[in-house]
Design a protein around this nucleic acid. Structure first.
Length: 587
DNA sequence: GCCGTTTTCGGCCCGACTGTTTTCAGTCG
């Protein structure tokens, strides 16, 4: 089945051809819009096609829908193929390399007769080595060097950064910047500020009345490896870690506009600017220009920026397209869940040593309780993996009893020692869902548990229908309360399992089952788009850290951010409940 | 090629930076 990314790539190629031919700028622009929209879809375009809803994609009209229909049916689009024939195929091998756009790609492919996409990169490398690229009109030594670097680094830098990588790098740099006396404000921007699960590069905004002086000190940050580009208001550096960081400067009076502009997303900004234009206002990072009076409104913070457009402040996590703008216009932006709302964590792995189906935890219960107390949690749920499946039932029973005793003894010792504000302890298990949907633990061993998380840990490649039935079968068990890391995806590693989520969500609502938002930074699962689907479908979620050691309890913020991106309110999350209400959920 | 709180025609987000020019095109976010 063709993926959204494949479709977007195809549309961008058509866009490139139109741009090269310089014939119809706005037509190429339309293809770009459509490519962006498809890339940002939260469901597969193929599914939309099956439902006859292609034109519901913003930017896809009658004509593009017909082309995509042909694509889904035959795998080709005759019109696209005809357009592609007008340019040397080698140019497509160059698209996507930083610094090379359609025009330059075409110029190179045309001049050197590059007609095979697959061999293009190799040939261009040879041309660079021979110095032949620099001789092209419009190019020069510097462009050739730039392209050389870009081609070399494109083989290295492919994966996007996880939070757990990006946050320490950006926090350290921002910490350094904030200590500079002339700096009024410094914040992360872009996808990092919108709390997207993975980020491309790191953007930092700085407000200062003394830009030159400030930038001089910023560039002395010891972790900087080299300067990539620098202007008056925008500098790009590469750190010794290899990460690229964009730094944007503005005066304190423009801080709100800068934050807004560079937080994006691109689609949010495009929608917002169209909305502003209808009101004769033009938006930029410098402020809001009244097109009639030519006066510029400079926003000192974001609230003032949105207020000037007659809109409430929109949380960065929601700024992904047009939907949030519709809600803002009606003043219906929901109050999203906050980290401070969280009152407990149900997915911790203890250090009880046994023949476990997967890895055991490394921290003592007392350490988890200490941390829970400092976070002002009211309760804590320990859910180790189920015992190995091939053990006898009696051995498993022994293990489960020994574990309970182990945890209770430690809990009592803790109570005797600490005495006050001790979180309530719930004893659960995380049980594997087998490929047929059966739980990897016998029924007779379940009644003693306070709750069970059921999770997929193998057989990731089953067909959609089998996976859907598998999850529903597992959740049908009366003790199964929570579906753990529901898609089983691992970021930068493996995609989620193929599931009819609408069916699973309907089942969860009808049977009061809870979907987990697993906060481990390489999971963030449910993904934000499915959180949104679940919440809209009336299903409750639980935000858990899946901690294997006490330091992992700090992951909670990643889970909250992901939930916020899914439009999740406090009332949608069961671990924001007070203990008495929570106990009702566990019954 | 898309789209509609002035519109089914006539608009289409906006600016910074680089490199190659000699006033601007191409790319990026």
């Amino acid at each position: 089945m063709i993926t959204n990314a494949d479709i977007a790539k195809l549309l961008r190629r058509v866009e490139a051809v139109y741009e090269v031919r310089d014939k119809d700028f706005f037509r190429s622009h339309a293809y770009e819009n459509a490519a962006n929209a498809v890339e940002n879809l939260t469901i597969s375009a193929h599914d939309l096609w099956e439902q006859g809803k292609l034109t519901e994609i913003p930017g896809v009209g009658e004509s593009l829908a017909a082309h995509l229909d042909e694509l889904m049916k035959t795998g080709r689009v005759k019109h696209f193929d005809a357009e592609f024939k007008r340019v040397p195929a080698g140019m497509f091998g160059l698209l996507g390399i930083r610094g090379i756009g359609p025009k330059i790609a075409y110029k190179i492919a045309k001049k050197f007769k590059l007609h095979d996409e697959k061999t293009t990169l190799k040939k261009v490398k040879q041309l660079i080595a021979a110095g032949k690229l620099a001789a092209l009109p419009g190019l020069g030594q510097k462009m050739q060097a730039k392209i050389k670097t870009a081609i070399e680094s494109s083989f290295v830098k492919d994966e996007r950064l996880l939070f757990s990588e990006a946050i320490p790098v950006s926090s350290d740099f921002i910490g350094y910047i904030r200590k500079i006396p002339s700096v009024a404000n410094a914040e992360p921007l872009g996808s990092l500020r919108r709390h997207v699960a993975t980020v491309g590069d790191i953007d930092i905004g700085i407000a200062t009345a003394k830009p030159t002086e400030t930038m001089e000190v910023v560039l002395k940050y010891p972790q900087i490896h080299k300067l990539i580009s620098s202007g008056e208001s925008l500098v790009r550096v590469q750190l010794k870690t290899g990460h690229e960081v964009d730094i944007k400067l503005c005066s304190p009076s423009e801080w709100g506009s800068l934050l807004q502009h560079y937080t994006g997303s691109k689609l949010h900004n495009i929608a917002l600017r169209s909305y502003a234009l209808e009101r004769h206002l033009s938006l930029s990072e410098h402020g809001i220009k009244n097109l009639r009076t030519k006066k510029i409104f400079r926003a000192k913070d974001e609230k003032a920026f949105y207020a000037h457009l007659g809109l409430p402040d929109i949380p960065p996590e929601l700024r992904e397209g047009e939907e949030e703008l519709d809600y803002a216009k009606k003043n219906k932006i929901p109050a999203l869940v906050e980290l401070e709302d969280i009152k407990g964590d149900f997915h911790l792995h203890s250090d009880f040593d046994f023949e476990s189906s997967h890895d055991i935890g490394r921290s003592k219960l007392a350490e988890y309780l200490d941390q829970a107390r400092s976070l002002h949690y009211d309760y804590l749920g320990v859910s180790d993996h189920n015992p190995k499946r091939d053990l006898s039932v009696s051995d498993k029973k022994k293990i489960i009893e020994a574990r309970k005793k182990y945890l209770f003894t430690q809990y009592q010792e803790y109570e005797n020692r600490v005495k006050t504000n001790i979180p309530k302890l719930f004893i659960g298990l995380e049980i594997d869902i087998r490929s047929d949907g059966e739980l990897a633990l016998e029924d007779e061993l379940l009644p003693d548990l306070d709750y069970a998380i059921v999770s997929v840990h193998n057989a990731f490649d089953l067909p959609k229908e089998e996976n859907t039935n598998r999850l529903i079968t597992a959740l049908s068990h009366p003790k199964a309360l929570i579906l753990g890391h529901p898609t089983a995806r691992k970021l930068n590693d493996r995609p989620g399992i193929d599931v009819d989520w609408e069916k699973v969500i309907n089942f969860c609502r009808a049977n009061s089952k809870v979907l987990e938002v697993n906060a481990a930074p390489d999971r963030l699962d449910l993904p934000d788009d499915l959180v949104k689907m679940a919440v809209r479908g009336g299903v409750k979620v639980v935000i858990d850290t899946d901690s294997h050691q006490v330091a992992n309890m700090d992951f909670m913020k990643y889970g909250v951010w992901t939930a916020r991106r899914g439009w999740c309110r406090k009332s949608d999350v069961i671990n924001t409940l007070d203990l008495p209400d929570l106990k009702k959920v566990l019954k």
